[in-house]
Nucleic acid binder design. Structure first.
Lengths: 239, 239
DNA sequence: CGTGTACTTGACAAGAGTCAACACCAGTGG
DNA sequence: CCACTGGTGTTGACTCTTGTCAAGTACACG
């Protein structure tokens, strides 16, 4: 399986073997979670950095009315919230979507690791900057894209992020995201999302299985979304 | 006038005089901008960190259709994009809204400053974490709040952020934001925002001047917004 | 005093939510 | 082995929010 976290950081800049083995050591102990398990809840005191080794998770907030908004998807290789230990409490919940294997890195350990391995620190900062770019793209989607564009845009994003970590084969990606979860991320009702996906299917851009979504024509999807991948920063500054 | 940037960082943790004077030195040279001046554009190569000393600015993205989405407001004391120099290009534009006085801190200078002053580094990280929390709150607003709630929520946020840096007096804040800009931030049309603000005015929560918005009853506004300030992290972990 | 930009209002159209019913499937326990 | 159950997906009819278009008003500025 390999360690997708290390693979991802390597894609942000060369790591030497010492860097890689330090990361390997830091993520050696991992824990298995079932689907829909909270890693940390809104209001909790922040703890260690989570590193998703396998499976999918998401961040979300719940409103007084009980409705839910997913604010980010986490896939293998993603990690959350460098320095978050500086805050008194979490402003959102992090929950697994599927079964997942997750490592944690304590705050002091992470500080030491980044001090001793500047190239790792650099890669971690890049990962954080990209996550911020993704949030800006989500705000833009929610504010100014139609529901079809918005759905297509999210799926494009997930496709490219997954491709970066080798989750895509034959230009196909299987997303283990239910329509309920997608609707909570896209800020629409499940009913409406269902109609939107039907339309995308009609245009032969995606296909639907029960509970899974398969992307059959990424190029067409990008055209529908008006997708510009610049915010994923796959082209990085050469050092 | 003082240096609102330093004041803000001080509110995130004690800084000693050496820390403060280093920050003072780093922001001593500032530049004046007129309204609607680009600091940096989408596609540009990232440069130094910008520090807003006076005036207001915003980040925005433009879609192929030409519509605009504001993704963040920057007020005095705010700074942008620690480590952004690691990326090859900006994924959004930063533009002044009003006349503004803005300092820049080069990447190496900032690295040196943070190395030599851990308390400054700590405060900068907190500022960044809060900015991320704000983005999550925006995503949540756009996805799951009605237009009235959303407008009220944004105004609450700006009110509290402004209060933190001493911009509020007599529970009143004057926002130099046009309805066009607010509409671009809230993901609605100016026409609709106008009606929403009229409704908020009717409920005596805000009052409107041409081009300026005055917040007269923050408490009522918070009730309308269902506002929970946790995401602004005003209560920080004690070190 | 004219001109441009922002704000305001009304009438109408389009998009998205709501409600309700039903289909489908996986897992459970009898 | 089958009926039951709960979660998810699907569809239709209807409502309501929001966008669109168009016209007009009010300032600020040169």
């Amino acid at each position: 399986m390999g360690n997708r976290f290390i693979d991802k950081l390597k894609s942000y800049g060369v790591l030497d073997t010492a860097d890689a083995s330090a990361l390997e050591a830091a993520t050696a102990r991992s824990q298995d979670y079932g689907a829909k398990a909270d890693l940390i809840r809104e209001g909790d005191r922040p703890g260690p950095v989570f590193v998703i080794l396998e499976g999918w998770a998401c961040r979300y907030k719940v409103l007084p009315s009980g409705t839910r908004q997913v604010t980010a998807f986490l896939m293998p290789g993603d990690c959350c919230d460098l320095h978050v230990g500086l805050l008194a409490e979490m402003d959102h919940t992090i929950q697994t979507i599927t079964q997942a294997k997750i490592a944690t890195i304590g705050r002091e350990e992470m500080d030491r690791l980044m001090d001793a391995h500047p190239k790792v620190a650099r890669a971690m900062y890049i990962a954080q900057l990209i996550d911020e770019g993704i949030m800006r793209a989500w705000i833009t989607s929610m504010g100014r894209r139609t529901s079809i564009e918005r759905a297509a845009h999210l799926i494009c994003e997930l496709y490219l992020r997954a491709a970066n970590i080798g989750l895509v084969s034959n230009a196909e990606l299987i997303l283990p995201l239910s329509q309920l979860v997608l609707a909570d991320a896209l800020g629409m009702t499940p009913v409406h999302l269902n109609r939107v996906l039907k339309e995308l299917k009609l245009q032969a851009a995606v296909s639907l299985q029960r509970g899974k979504l398969m992307i059959t024509d990424p190029a067409k999807l990008m055209r529908i979304a008006g997708f510009d991948e610049n915010y994923l920063h796959r082209r990085l500054r050469v050092a």
